[in-house]
Amino acid sequence: MIFRRRRKDDPVAAIDAFWAWWATARPRAERQITGDADDRLIAEIGALVSAIHPELEWEFTAGTASRHLLVVSACGDPALRSLAERWRRAGPAPDETFGYASARQGSPDALDGGHLSIAGHELDLDELRFSAEPDEERDCVHVEVWHPAFPSMPDGARNQVAFLSLDWLLGEDGVEIWVGGIEAITTPGATLTGPELAALVAALDPADGEPRWRAMSGTVDGHPVVAIAQSPLRPARWPGHDLHVRLEVPYHRRDGNGLPTKEALADLHALEDHISVHADGAVVVAHETSDGLRTTHLYADRPAAAHALEPLISSWPDGRVRLTVTPDPAWEQIAHLNP
């Protein structure tokens, strides 16, 4: 196995320091939420979150299963999403008073009766309207956002309202996974209310929970390549899985194009099924096949999950399976498979 070290140490100590502090500071947080202002508490939380990473943000908000929710957010940065998830996993279990989340949560009724002051305008959020254009190739929707005040607002403010409203309705992960392009428009035409848009996006997630796969083909260096990938191929679907695991599996039996014969493909599928069943903390997200080599892409949530794959591939009869593990929180290693 090849394991490439991170250039910087993981912020494990900073995460541990946060939760050690929270164990004693939580009563102060409960008083803060009920109206007992504590500027020192706010400053302390900000400093502890910044120590994990300076680009992370945090907030208290209303919960669902718990009355209150403490959120540490990557603010849409996929390179930080797994770090926020590691913060959450290291914390205590939720209870009636406090829950914990690594992304801002959405609510279909988030805009009801809401108002927003921005760029000198007072917006009634109930007046926001949306349109959603399905993109079947990417398993997402492109969303347009309209408000009667948009024509008189600067571009930056319109765009800010568009992104904020989608985060409030769908949650940060919902936007990251299911929304493609976002555009703030100044011409009436969008007709969906916030709850209608939220219901439409929720319906994109398969009810049976089974993964969807998308097939692709092309050529590399003159050799045909066929590939399949889970869709949508977004890291927010598997927060915390930030280690790219690349398995390069050789096969001898191939046709004139270098692709596996029927018999070889059956053996490759059997190996992949074996890996999928026994992998703990790793998920198969894509395959590429070309010129006698089948490359399987997995993402793991911890180094031990990657090491656990070694005995599963050790007996492959067509030669040595090369396994490479690379830190990749933004999933850049498979960007070419994501339309």
Rank of each mutant, 00 (worst) to 15 (best):
M1K: 09
I2T: 13
F3S: 10
P11W: 03
F18N: 05
W19G: 01
A23I: 02
A23T: 07
T24A: 13
A29Y: 01
Q32I: 03
D36A: 13
D36W: 06
A43N: 10
E44F: 03
A47L: 14
A47S: 10
L48K: 03
V49Q: 02
A51T: 08
I52E: 07
H53M: 06
P54L: 03
E57A: 09
E59G: 14
F60Y: 14
T64I: 11
T64V: 10
T64F: 08
S66H: 00
L70Q: 08
V71I: 13
V71H: 05
A74L: 08
A74T: 05
A79G: 13
L80M: 11
E85N: 10
R86C: 08
R86L: 06
W87N: 04
R89N: 02
P92M: 06
P94K: 01
D95E: 10
F98K: 06
G99A: 02
G99C: 01
A101I: 04
S102R: 07
A103Q: 04
R104I: 15
P108M: 06
D112T: 12
H115P: 07
I118R: 01
E122L: 07
D124N: 04
L125H: 13
L125T: 06
E133H: 09
E137I: 15
C140K: 07
V141S: 01
W146E: 09
F150M: 02
S152P: 00
P154C: 06
D155Q: 10
S165R: 01
L166M: 01
D167A: 14
W168H: 13
L169Y: 00
G171M: 02
D173Y: 05
I177E: 06
V179N: 05
G180D: 03
G181V: 14
E183I: 14
I185N: 05
G189P: 09
T191P: 07
E196S: 04
L197E: 00
L200H: 12
L204S: 12
G209E: 07
P211R: 08
P211L: 06
R214W: 13
A215F: 10
A215R: 15
S217T: 09
G218N: 11
G218E: 07
T219K: 15
T219C: 10
D221V: 13
P224A: 12
V225S: 06
V226H: 12
A227D: 04
A227F: 10
I228A: 13
A229Q: 04
S231T: 15
R234G: 09
P235I: 09
L243G: 03
H244P: 04
Y251L: 14
Y251M: 12
G256Q: 13
G256M: 12
G258L: 04
E263N: 15
A266I: 09
D267E: 15
L271T: 08
L271W: 06
A279G: 02
H287S: 05
S290P: 01
G292R: 06
R302K: 13
R302N: 11
R302Q: 14
I313N: 01
W316E: 02
W316F: 00
W316I: 02
P317N: 05
G319Y: 03
R322T: 11
L323R: 10
V325C: 04
V325T: 04
A335H: 09
P339T: 07
